[in-house]
Design a protein around this nucleic acid. Structure first.
Length: 305
DNA sequence: AAATCGGGGGC
DNA sequence: GCCCCAGATTT
């Protein structure tokens, strides 16, 4: 039961928040960023690719990679047929390269299960590699204009502030939070898709995590957090950033960067230079091989063919 | 529920 | 230096 769509509530008692939805969507109609995966000629596959790239990677870093990617592999069939080494190099430094691997697996699944056509049902999307609750709902809304409950970090923050009156949402969503999000979704598909885009956009552009721009916020007058005096985050103590220096993630990143930059196989002597601690380095290389991100062939390492 | 998984830019 | 970024998957 790890991956379940959030089902929209039928006819909700959401009239309470009708003003919120109206003001945010009206603002969005005027303020929406001109992002390439929102263009009129967008494809469902392009939307899906953007959503996977945007999992934990900011828009400004995704945009140029997405453009190059879609030009090179416009359809699921194109990506399915590509060399994995090329895919990992094109992923470049977007981070979490297992996402690139899953995206190619996703392309192959779309080809095999759906004849190369991205499915429009949330359940079928959810069954694809690398597609979780958020991404499935987002593709339903943004690629197909369907009704779904889209809850990402932006939406969570917007609802935490405007409705709950807190600076930030709790580290992980609770059932009540998801119920609230579901209750806010308009009944009609078009309205639902617009609300999804608008609420996310507000969090991304105005209702940001640090230094929110309340002065230009369309719902500042009704925002519970602001009306409460914009109190600081209550669970700040638990919010500890993941360490970076000296972690396996840093070591794995260095190994991947080395292999991405090489045209072909890399001798182990060069791999040994990226990290001095042999035990940690070997553990990380082994995990990369285990993940399918690296192949070992005797004394050389390379990206998968 | 908690841990793991990259990398960079704003402050 | 710290924090966050259109999360997913595994344990």
């Amino acid at each position: 039961m790890a991956r379940m769509p959030v089902h929209p509530t039928p006819a909700a008692a959401s009239d309470t928040y009708a003003g919120l939805r109206r003001d945010v969507t009206a603002w969005f109609d005027d303020a929406a960023r001109d992002l390439p995966w929102r263009a009129a000629d967008r494809t469902p596959w392009g939307v899906l690719v953007s959503e996977v790239m945007l999992q934990q990677t900011p828009v400004v870093r995704v945009e140029p990679r997405w453009r190059a990617w879609m030009e090179r592999w416009p359809t699921p069939a194109d990506l399915a047929a590509a060399s994995t080494a090329d895919v990992l190099r094109a992923w470049d430094r977007l981070g979490y390269p297992r996402r690139a691997l899953r995206l190619q697996e996703c392309a192959r699944a779309v080809v095999e299960r759906h004849g190369g056509v991205v499915p429009s049902s949330e359940a079928e999307l959810l069954a694809l590699p690398g597609v979780g609750t958020y991404t499935a709902a987002a593709v339903v809304a943004f690629a197909f204009g369907g009704r779904s409950v889209v809850v990402d970090t932006n939406v969570r923050r917007v609802l935490a502030r405007t409705v709950a009156g807190t600076a930030l949402p709790p580290p992980s969503p609770r059932a009540a939070e998801l119920r609230l999000a579901a209750s806010l979704v308009p009944d009609d598909a078009t309205g639902a898709a617009r609300w999804a885009a608008a609420s996310m956009e507000l969090g991304a552009v105005v209702c940001t995590a640090r230094a929110p721009r309340c002065d230009v916020c369309p719902v500042r007058a009704a925002c519970a957090w602001r009306l409460a005096g914009s109190p600081p985050d209550e669970h700040g103590a638990r919010r500890r950033t993941q360490a970076w220096e000296g972690t396996d993630r840093q070591v794995r990143g260095r190994v991947m960067a080395l292999l991405r930059g090489a045209d072909g196989p890399v001798h182990q002597a060069l791999v040994e230079e990226v990290w001095p601690d042999a035990a940690q380095r070997e553990r990380c290389v082994a995990s990369l091989v285990e993940d399918g991100l690296v192949e070992q062939d005797g004394e050389v390492y390379r990206l998968p063919a």
